[in-house]
Design a protein around this nucleic acid. Structure first.
Lengths: 353, 353
DNA sequence: CGCTTCGTTGGAAGCGGTTCCATATCGGGG
DNA sequence: CCCCGATATGGAACCGCTTCCAACGAAGCG
């Protein structure tokens, strides 16, 4: 494998000149440039990224740290980052986080000298302490999907989103609205699920609906859990007429529970999700659309701007808009049996155990 | 940011000793080791990856090159890689390919000196020439999801998979089986769709069913296209009683076309997919299960083994098993209306509408 | 015609590690 | 008491690039 020295010798010039040609830098005469280019081609020379990184003191790499690569929402965000980076000179170092220990390690690595020139933290809410540490770094950091105050971030207003979903259901006439969210003490300090619940509760309060804690269920963020939680939500005396799930994945679990119990959606139960992942459309799921791909793209662009301009990032939050997407899983609350009869065949409502 | 020299001074030792401690290498006395460890901690020292890479002549990085990050199947494979790498000392460099030019560039980068110590090419069939070039490299390469002869690979037998799907449909009694696949001249030299078709046609030939080219449709790999293709497949005089789609994504497009046309699945039309992505289960889609996650994991492990043992990779193909997963979208061909009435068949979709 | 000035150019120094070689130290055997 | 091998340690050389500084020649100017 040829080095810059080989190229210099082959072209009959000094290594400095080769470097200048490589970096499109100043003052190299046309003839010399041609000779060097020819030598590079002849030797199939490619500069060593490591040597370049060491010498320039920058890695030309962006670290993307994200947990839950299983979640479609995270993947969408990463895709947005890939898209933004694909034209740039930067490589993408994907740092997956699967355990709290890994989370800590990854966070620490962000500051590491020439590992990455900038970092994108996706869905990985830093604690105030971690945030302060990150803000102290020279490495620019953009946080996606977490509220922070000392760092640049790209977020959506989860509280507003929760309110949006709730108000839609309230408008349809629902009074008993249940919520299925993530565990509160999530090991990764996630707040989006809790925030969406906050929005929901605010909307309920505004509508003078009293708080009933049997309407709120939490568990690990997956379909099967959502299915189970739905069963218990529906088993109470006066069951909800609508369920708001904190993600589409969970909403689909709700739909499955409904289907298994023979409960008709939306006639007997309205279901609304959050995110608007591809599957939501397939299921006709009403949901709150979140610009996931966009969030990754915007965050990466912020980082690239900062890197390109040498200007540090402002600790501002870029808010991306949420929109409600009404589809086929929501409607006015439970119609009377007579009404239902007249519409189509009766199916006895299996009382969820 | 502290360097190894700072640590050496702080600890009152030489840089060589620090390096030895860092690399857990031979002969360092206990006392010295302790001093060095203390210095490292005190200075919050972390070695520079670039310097280390340059000096060791290896990057501790694995390149993962993959197109179509939009496809769930590709994402699953990448997840498998992430999983295998998460315990190792290797970082993951994600090289996304979105255009043929990028494909070429990425392929060339694989050989680059200290960019990556090994490469994983996912769903990115190299041409024979490219394969030869890659095989000539010292960098170990594992190819996932493409047939190659000079390189190590992890594949499934797409021809057998196509045959498996076809034979299942034939057993159910279908005689007119249509196929929806990718465009043949795919810019990325994909062959899996064509191979699955080969298997299908072989099975049809074995069953003495004559070839009818109106039963075979091709187009870009997406849901909407599959929906359109389905419409035209069903518009012919003697339409198919079963459709085999070369991916679940496309199969779901078929289901949508059926739903839109009011065609009952599986009573009037059987649908079978390929891959067994998560959505397939949600739709009750009969499909050929492919171990996607596993393929990434196995490929990464092969690479890690080779890297760890210094032994070059054998140019063998690791074949992962395919299994047919019968669900609710397949059944015997069109029953009479009377029969259908009496049975009250299963519906493929979560009843949303 | 001598002296700047400026565009080119070569190459040493340095980036921060690893590694190898030389050196120092120590205990034990003869 | 000396010699020897083993163990521990320091640090120069090197990995391949960028960058800065010195040097050189040609052109411009008075």
């Amino acid at each position: 494998m040829a080095t810059i020295k080989d190229v210099a010798e082959y072209a009959g010039v000094g290594i400095g000149t080769v470097s200048r040609v490589l970096n499109g830098a100043a003052s190299v005469s046309d003839g010399t440039r041609r000779k060097v280019v020819a030598a590079i081609r002849a030797l199939e020379y490619r500069p060593s990224p490591a040597a370049r990184a060491l010498s320039r003191r920058r890695a030309s790499t962006i670290a993307v740290t994200a947990p839950f690569l299983t979640r479609p929402s995270v993947v969408e965000r990463v895709r947005g980052v890939v898209d933004a980076l694909s034209g740039s000179e930067y490589d993408l170092w994907l740092a997956a986080v699967e355990t709290p220990e890994q989370r800590l390690r990854r966070l620490a690595e962000v500051g590491q000298r020439d590992r990455a020139d900038g970092a994108l933290l996706i869905s990985l809410a830093p604690t105030p302490q971690e945030e302060a540490d990150l803000a102290a770094l020279e490495t620019p950091v953009v946080v996606v999907d977490s509220k922070v105050s000392l760092l640049a971030s790209v977020i959506t207003d989860d509280v507003a989103g929760g309110r949006m979903a709730a108000e839609y259901l309230l408008e349809l006439g629902h009074r008993r609205i249940a919520y299925i969210g993530d565990e509160f003490d999530a090991r990764f300090h996630f707040t989006s699920s809790a925030d969406r619940l906050t929005g929901l509760r605010a909307a309920l309060a505004d509508a003078d609906i009293e708080y009933d804690d049997r309407m709120f269920a939490h568990g690990p963020h997956d379909r099967a859990t959502a299915t189970l939680l739905t069963q218990s939500l529906l088993a109470v005396r006066n069951p909800p007429t609508a369920i708001f799930a904190s993600s589409d994945t969970q909403a689909i679990g709700v739909l499955e529970a409904a289907r298994a119990a023979g409960i008709r959606v939306p006639d007997e139960l309205s279901v609304i999700g959050f995110d608007d992942i591809e599957t939501a459309e397939l299921f006709g799921l009403t949901t709150v659309h979140q610009p996931l791909f966009e969030s990754g793209r915007v965050a990466a662009e912020l980082l690239l701007d900062s890197l390109g301009s040498q200007r540090p990032l402002d600790a501002d939050a870029t808010r991306l808009p949420l929109t409600l997407v009404p589809r086929r899983t929501t409607g006015p609350p439970r119609r009377t049996t007579a009404q239902r009869r007249s519409v189509s065949g009766t199916r006895p409502r299996a009382s969820a155990s």
